[in-house]
Nucleic acid binder design. Sequence first.
DNA 1: CGCAAAGTTGAGCGTCCTCAAGCAGCGTGG
DNA 2: CCACGCTGCTTGAGGACGCTCAACTTTGCG
Lengths: 250, 250
Amino acid sequence: MLNATSPARSSAIAARTMPKTNRIGEAFELLQAHLPITRHLVREGDRVYQVGQRMDCLFVVFSGSFKTVNLASDGREQVVGLHLKGDWLGFDGIAEGQHACDAVAMDVGEVWSVQYAALLLSCALQPALLSLVHAAMSREITRERNSMMSLCTLPANARVADFLHGWAEALAERGLRTDQITLRMSRAEIGNYLGMTLESVSRAMSQLARDNVIGFPEKGRRHVQIPDVSALSRFVQRSVSLAEAVPTLQ
Amino acid sequence: MLNATSPARSSAIAARTMPKTNRIGEAFELLQAHLPITRHLVREGDRVYQVGQRMDCLFVVFSGSFKTVNLASDGREQVVGLHLKGDWLGFDGIAEGQHACDAVAMDVGEVWSVQYAALLLSCALQPALLSLVHAAMSREITRERNSMMSLCTLPANARVADFLHGWAEALAERGLRTDQITLRMSRAEIGNYLGMTLESVSRAMSQLARDNVIGFPEKGRRHVQIPDVSALSRFVQRSVSLAEAVPTLQ
DNA sequence: CGCAAAGTTGAGCGTCCTCAAGCAGCGTGG
DNA sequence: CCACGCTGCTTGAGGACGCTCAACTTTGCG
């Protein structure tokens, strides 16, 4: 009954099987229908929240791109996540009641904030809302695991290829074009995220360009042309089988 | 009112400030009080669930230790998480409705399974239960981020030290002794988890033993003596500042 | 007791990091 | 308008850390 009258009629099951672009759109409708949300415009460098800050709100990316940055007590700093439209920010703060990382805008954009307390109350009344939040957390966990896997099993060149592939896929899920993407991160940030130096990132991208897996159409080296996204997967694939080829020859 | 009569009276706030050992104990009471749970005994190598399998249940570790293993389509395999008493298994499966990794027992132990559908219903009625689940997911996200950070910013020796430190801390949180721990993983598994070879793990542990940060009291090299857990942190610390020392001299 | 599996250790090598130099894009100011 | 400096990117040379391969030792189990 509640489902039938709500603007987003999708149950958890339906959400699973429908195109992801729709899923994200309906998520915003669902939020707007059942919660008091506040919209915040941000510019590059703006901090959505900082480590140690009290976790009162969760945030949902409406537009733009964001990074989450972990800070160790010894000063080590690491980009641990990238977030686009539909992604949530702040889950890390739930357990301890305060944020465990910084969330920083990499671009102009908009985030919606929702009071966590209010969200919990609404979730109790709105199963679809609860499913939405759980799915977002679940996706976050899965994505981080895939990042770990990339870090642990791929050589530097393939890691960059996998990164670009992931970014293109994320854009595709949101109905954006993937043949021509603009990186909002410097080589140093990409390297930090991928566990390598900025020089290695640069060399990897030069290599990918030499192999015609990507291209640099304009002057700015942050504009990357990806004629065929699957070519990036194949590049990763090749690196893996190449590494395994030597042992099997023995 | 409901809270007052439930066996676990802890609100989310209270759970945050109380000792973690209690927190875990009360979590099981809360589960048992409000949900139909099934207890499963497992032995080493038993699979709690497998990738691709339908996600009907979530699982909570009651005893023993478990690993989650990611499988890529190209055959790459990677241990992406370790789980002890109180940890949940299966969050990765919520978004897509099917499990995204394998969960494998590394030891004799016990897991409790709960129907995810039933859990959702109970969460709507029991705020404390909802908080419990969210806190567990949040902790999972935070832990994985810390793993990523370790992978990206630490050299091999320090990564092993950090791994042992994390394991000891996890035991301490559960009220277990940390001066004498038994690794339930082979060097190869540890290496896979930490993104290095089994030889490098072996060398790192030998190095730690040479520095008297750990010891091997018995014959079996899986029994590790940790006279002072903070010495492991200090070893990590030293590796970080050592790496930074050279650049600052320039 | 003997075999298989796991762990240790060493030597050589490759990938990636460090350091350095040069280049490209871009805003500022003479 | 272009010189100027600044920041970010690229490329190269050399070196170090960790991987590969191999031999050996230890442990656990039938």
